[in-house]
């Protein structure tokens, strides 16, 4: 369980980082908190020639408040979000999500950008940023683009990131004061990845409703928002939503995902 021999650099500008990524032809990997990449290196599931540490790039490290949204640098750790200013509604929700990820030692190093780029179907940020309607700013050698969290993830452990691209920012629309958030994940033990999860946002003031199922075998599933939440929470609707995934027909998976949706809806509507 030792990684292959690789080089390591820690650039201090975004341009230098994407240049290095572009040169590698796939044998260069970005690294942030190494909480997902580290085990993969040790298991030799990833055998890079070069690691580009992105945690010294200023654009990735800050959090700022804008009128319509909260902008989080991709290199911000779960722990910093957990410790954020909870008097502000959006940040309070982010803090609540962050506090449920793994345990503090992992949160101290793991980052929101790393979590999204890794795209483990069971990851908290994946399902939550999708439910919050967040956007990601991606920067590569060819320039920058903005994509929604929902479309960013293509499948299990698969995203639309090009080899030379980095996630730079995660932009979360500000929640209105009266918005309701519900998030439930089923973990066999605390700090473990979820067996099922669901996130629900009801933001009447902005006319935004979303219910997302996570911890499937693929990308988070956004349920049809034209249907009432009570209907989405039914086992039949969940079974239908899971039918295109590898979990189709899995009685246990359908049952616990349906329970997760029910509980997230309950939390968001109670």
């Amino acid at each position: 369980m030792k990684p292959v021999d690789f080089d390591y650099v820690k650039p201090t500008t975004l341009a230098a980082a994407v240049d290095l990524l572009a040169q590698g032809n796939g044998s260069v990997k970005a690294v942030a908190g190494a909480q997902s990449l580290g085990p993969m290196l040790n298991l030799r599931l990833v055998q890079p020639e070069l690691l580009v540490d992105v945690t010294a790039i200023p654009e990735l490290l800050g959090t700022r408040e804008e009128a319509e949204r909260i902008v989080i640098g991709a290199g911000v750790t779960h722990a910093r979000l957990e410790d954020g200013d909870t008097s502000e509604r959006t940040q309070a929700v982010l803090a609540q999500i962050a506090s449920g990820i793994a345990y503090r030692a992992v949160r101290n190093r793991g980052t929101i950008g790393g979590s999204l780029a890794h795209a483990d179907p069971a990851a908290d940020w994946l399902v939550c940023t999708t439910a919050l309607g967040a956007e990601l700013l991606l920067v590569g050698t060819a320039g920058q683009r903005t994509v929604s969290a929902a479309e960013f993830v293509v499948g299990g452990f698969e995203t639309m990131l090009a080899p030379d691209e980095l996630i730079v920012e995660v932009r979360v629309p500000r929640l209105s004061a009266g918005s309701r958030w519900g998030y439930y994940k089923l973990c066999r033990k605390r700090g473990e990845f979820a067996d099922a999860s669901a996130a629900v946002l009801v933001d009447d003031a902005r006319g935004f409703y979303r219910c997302v199922i996570g911890a499937t075998s693929g990308r988070p599933i956004v349920l049809d928002d034209s249907r009432p939440l009570s209907e989405l929470a039914g086992a039949a609707a969940v079974a239908e939503a899971l039918s295109p995934t590898a979990l189709a027909g899995d009685a246990f998976a359908i049952q616990v995902h349906a329970a997760a949706v029910r509980r997230a809806v309950r939390a968001a509507t109670a």
Partner: peptide, 13 residues
């Protein structure tokens, strides 16, 4: 083959 699949009780359990 990893502790992600082989679950052990932690102090919260």
């Amino acid at each position: 083959s990893t502790l992600m699949d082989y679950l052990l009780p932690g102090f919260t359990e």
